[in-house]
Design a protein around this nucleic acid. Structure first.
Lengths: 194, 194
DNA sequence: GTCTATATGCCGATAGAC
DNA sequence: GTCTATCGGCATATAGAC
């Protein structure tokens, strides 16, 4: 039931925001009464905090696993592609949690933000490491600001949640295209426009 | 006073979300009582709809103006750079409106979403045109999906609102780096990783 | 154009039965 | 572990004085 509550809350937070998600609505989705929620969680904010943490933990675990199971011969480019794919795919499996975090974090009460910030930062630091590895292996252009590139990549990936429908392109294909974009861009590489 | 109400509402919608923004709070920011708001707007949803429309209209106008005042000799790359810069800079001037749209649109009531969708779509179509022009001028690689590239670029640009602080890099420099990223990526162009 | 007062209803959370 | 009943507070919106 605990997980059922979190699932219901994640979905509602995603769609209705923080204040728009009521304990009564969460309970209704679980087939119980609002008062019964307090047997599982101390407060609405505790539910939100757990939704945030659960989402980041799962995405981070999926991405790390995807990168770790690559062969030692994998290039940094291969690792980034695998990470992008795992990140996108987790939108499908933990989408309500991920989308809740992305869409609701900014309007969550400060204490809830603080509690989740550590996990968020660690996950972003992992991505920074991936890109830093690419640089050290000589796979990147000189003069590229990796912090900005990482933030740009994150924005591009996470924005997928706002437009993606399963009827279109697959996550694997999308991961391929995003990785291609972040590594090579849309321009011709013959310097015609540079 | 009408504009004052919109400014206050935009700021609150941005920080507190749709349901978390109360007419009392909007009124308090304007130094009046909640009931007085109904002299200027019929309802909370009408305020939100106007915040959405105002933001999109202003950003779109700024971007078009920036592109239009380029010399005829400007490449599509130049136009995209100017558009990215104007889009980012409008975050500074109309940031509460833009951020409200980006963060709150998904949790707004359907009728409000519908009312704003036309403007949103037209603005995105304009960007699509910019990229399409780059392709027709032969400035792009073959095989690039411009719809995906545009969505990726939008995500990257709009994500700036979540991390940007005026103390760091300037919007002009950021526009230069984003444009460089979307055209050339982070990878070496000698094909070492492709 | 702003005010006070209020109608009507939902909010998060608690008490205590079963 | 779920329930009913309820507390105190705040929500949007309206009525009508000034």
């Amino acid at each position: 039931m605990r997980q059922k509550v979190l699932d219901a809350a994640a979905r509602l937070f995603r769609d209705k925001g923080y204040a728009g998600t009521t304990m009564r609505a969460v309970a209704a989705r679980c087939g119980i009464r609002a008062a019964s929620l307090y047997h599982h969680f101390p407060s609405k904010d505790d539910i939100l905090a757990e939704v945030f943490d659960y989402g980041v933990r799962r995405v981070a675990a999926a991405v790390r696993a995807a990168v770790d199971c690559l062969p030692p011969s994998a290039s940094a480019h291969d690792k980034v592609r695998a990470a992008v794919h795992a990140h996108l795919e987790s939108f499908f499996v933990y989408g309500d949690y991920t989308a809740s975090n992305i869409r609701v974090f900014g309007q969550a009460p400060r204490p809830v933000q603080r509690k989740n910030r550590g996990l968020r930062d660690r996950y972003e630091a992992y991505w920074h490491l991936l890109l830093e590895e690419a640089r050290q292996r000589g796979e990147l252009r000189r003069g590229v600001d990796l912090s900005i590139a990482r933030l740009f990549l994150f924005g591009g990936m996470n924005h997928t949640l706002e437009w993606y429908t399963a009827s279109g392109v697959s996550f694997r294909e999308l991961a391929e295209r995003y990785t291609d974009l972040i590594f090579h861009g849309i321009g011709r590489s013959d310097g015609a426009t540079a």
